[in-house]
Design a protein around this nucleic acid. Structure first.
Lengths: 185, 185
DNA sequence: AATATAATGAGACTCAAAGTTTCGAAATTG
DNA sequence: CAATTTCGAAACTTTGAGTCTCATTATATT
């Protein structure tokens, strides 16, 4: 019921192009910055046509979001997973915050684009926000009984990180320590 | 030393146009949404030339930021001031959060634009972020002794509000209550 | 093998809106 | 009156996202 449509006639989608596009998108954004990257530059460097890009993604931002989410998925650190299992908030933040900071500039621009595009916003939540938010909920579950209160704390913790990121203020280990302490006040 | 340059020759700046532009910018953004407003539409409706707009503001976003900051200044509620003086965090949040929510869509778009423009970002901090952040610092000063810890709490509180705003999640009285409770955990 | 279908890379094209430039008229100072 | 600066109006430039066209290629069906 999932693979049923694999049997369509016609030339199949090129995985080579797909992967090349995601790869190029990721590296161009990391090296040249979001602003310098264009749909053209991605397609060109990936040896693909712009048409191919727009056939599979609704926008330039969606490609970059996809590229970032892809890289993020393969980087589910052991320390992060350990922190989640043991419910260690500080360890979680110490693993999460540097990971976010590393792709910070790209994240900021994606969040920015998402403000102008509801569908991108939904995609952002689904691919980048929720995958990080859910583990935090689990960690806090044992600590904060009330669900509403817990949700506010989640917003406070990730909110602080994003707030700092968007305003060009430090997103570092010190923040991790202070946020962990804050949940324990 | 402040008014010394008032004695320049030539036609002086038209306060009528300045005010009309700020007024139009505010109302167009509130009524039609940030995306529908263009530099042309503002100038046209204000009975001004686009030239005039760009002579005094560096970008469309700067005009709207200015317009929002202006309206915000005139709306320093009594309840808000009372909350600050009495150091009542809940009262502060109950006055601040609805005020933010009221102009939420515009704020989101300004924050988004600011990600692409460092100067606008600095202006945003100066005109909208700091004027709200400083009072919160004062309120927390009596409650949280350590300056770093206090700063993290500031980021957590305003961060939570922005996070909710940017992700289309509720920014309401319940959040005010929960954030106030959070600082008291 | 022949045919229908759908994707491919390349590149021309459209479009919208930000920001710039030009212009003649109007408001100042001296 | 002369110099200076802003004014409103409107033409113009620029940029990049997204669309369209096309000849070509890979696959399924018959």
């Amino acid at each position: 019921m999932e693979q049923a449509e694999k049997r369509r006639p016609g030339r199949p989608r090129s995985d080579i192009s797909k992967n090349a596009i995601l790869d190029v998108a990721y590296w161009q954004v990391m090296e040249q910055g979001y602003g310098k990257v264009t749909a053209d530059s991605i397609a060109k460097a990936a040896g693909a046509g712009k048409q191919t890009l727009y056939r599979w993604w609704p926008s330039k931002a969606a490609v970059i979001l996809d590229a970032l989410a892809e890289k993020g998925r393969t980087r589910i650190d052991r320390p992060l997973e350990a922190a989640i299992r043991s419910g260690d908030l500080l360890a979680f933040l110490q693993a999460t915050i540097p990971a976010i900071a590393a792709i910070g500039p790209a994240l900021r621009h994606l969040m920015a684009e998402a403000q102008f595009d509801p569908k991108l916003r939904a995609l952002l939540r689904e691919r980048l926000i929720e995958p990080r938010r859910e583990p935090l909920r689990q960690i806090l579950a044992t600590r904060v009984a009330d669900a509403h209160q817990r949700e506010a704390l989640v917003a406070a913790i990730f909110g602080a990180i994003w707030y700092r990121l968007l305003l060009d203020e430090p997103v570092d280990e010190a923040l991790a320590v202070e946020l962990a302490a804050l949940a324990r006040i």
